[in-house]
Nucleic acid binder design. Structure first.
Lengths: 231, 231
DNA sequence: CATTCAATCGTACACCGTACGAGTCAATCA
DNA sequence: TGATTGACTCGTACGGTGTACGATTGAATG
């Protein structure tokens, strides 16, 4: 299995330029690199969605031939994995070590998490089915540390982390999908007509219509955090 | 847009047979029908996973030509929608109207929900990105009614329903994905080596290793239910 | 100058979903 | 009865996909 796979070692060209200018091809195009591929893939995913990412189009946008990508990445799945982990890179982490205000820190982390997934809706639906990359694991680690400092015992850590993770993931994935399906009003209207008769409670509470996603998210999160077993 | 689409009206052949025996082709194969297509699609999804479902293979398994499917279904996306909603069909609903024990009923509903998604792992990752079918809406309605009877005010219903929905969805999706990625031990081992140095807290709490998914699910759910605002 | 090797890319192939139109056969109508 | 309709089936073909394979380039190294 997979004998001759060179799958993306991606060592950047050791070309020593004068400035920080990256290596360029004769044509003036910047040369290929894992970073450029991943960054462009993220752009494309943002613009075209998850099944709008085609290898040919990605190559075009990079000014390269399709097969050139395969020296760097192995296959398309790997592009997904890399793009996914890339958007979860840490930008800056003021890292409040304030033990008293552990809760504010945790909430900020989770909202940051959520904001990223909403900014890149494809990431929410990708996250569950792909491996956990370094940045994602890093965020889990940071969160674990914060909870640990806040007094959560190691024995309770799994429940705490996974409850929060599950909640954030579910909330974001749900919201992202609703943002999309609201786009096609046709189905919405059609659904609405059947609603009032067959689904009276849903209709009465306007479940599918006026959900205040951000508020709901915060309230559910508060409940979860209140219930966290702390020593 | 879509002028000549006949997309799956699927009215079964009005062939009147002696018994409840379905119509058959000369070859002895039972004839095509929406129900048979969807049922076979579910089988195939269970067996091959979400990207293992090919129209040709589906047709083969039904003993039909590929294009015959398209008289019933419109396109492949619709097969996904139908298969998804199909697994959420109600089997039987003992429907405990016991007001005292509302909580037991809600927990049972949610665990049923979760059990279905774990039995058909593809459904968990499909659910967020597809429209809500009749059975799914029906389950939301049933849940809303139960919560309503339990004393949750209409104003708090959205928060309650979505918190529970999000939690169940997230928990199941996470678990289903881990069940898959545990399959390839290679990545697991590789990840393990990097873990102890870079992710000490994760390593210490054995977050990715001994998670008791069912227990964690129940505990987080309890916290959520405890925090539900009731009148 | 010869060799090596990272990197690029054109061509070709297998496989996918599905458009199109022709075929079948029972029910219906003239 | 014979003609017509319409539900249903299906073979062929097309455009688009990911990617295997091998040729090519060009700088670094001996």
């Amino acid at each position: 299995m997979a004998v001759k796979r060179n799958g993306g070692q991606g060592k950047r060209p050791p070309r020593v330029e004068a400035t920080a200018q990256a290596g360029r091809k004769p044509g003036g195009e910047p040369s290929l690199s894992l970073e450029r591929i991943v960054a462009t893939a993220v752009e494309l995913l943002d613009a075209e969605g998850i099944e709008g990412l085609k290898m040919r189009q990605l190559a075009d946008r990079l000014g390269a031939g399709v097969m050139s990508l395969y020296w760097h990445v192995g296959n398309k799945e790997e592009v997904f994995d890399l793009a996914l982990d890339a958007v979860f890179a840490f930008l800056d982490q003021p890292q409040t070590d304030d033990v008293e205000d552990w809760r504010k820190g945790v909430v900020r982390m989770l909202e940051d998490w959520r904001a990223i997934m909403l900014r890149h809706p494809w990431s929410a639906s990708l996250l569950p089915r792909r491996a956990l990359g370094a940045n994602i694991l890093g965020r889990l680690e940071t969160m674990s540390e914060a909870l640990s400092r806040a007094g959560v015992a190691d024995a309770d850590m799994n429940v705490a982390i996974w409850s929060l993770w599950n909640y954030v993931l579910g909330a974001t994935v749900t919201r992202a999908s609703f943002a999309l399906s609201d786009a096609d009003q046709a189905a919405g209207q059609e659904r609405l007509s059947a609603l009032s008769e067959r689904y009276p409670t849903i209709e009465r509470t306007r479940l599918l219509l006026d959900s205040d996603w951000d508020g709901t998210f915060r309230k559910g999160l508060d409940v979860l955090l209140d219930g966290l077993p702390r020593g």
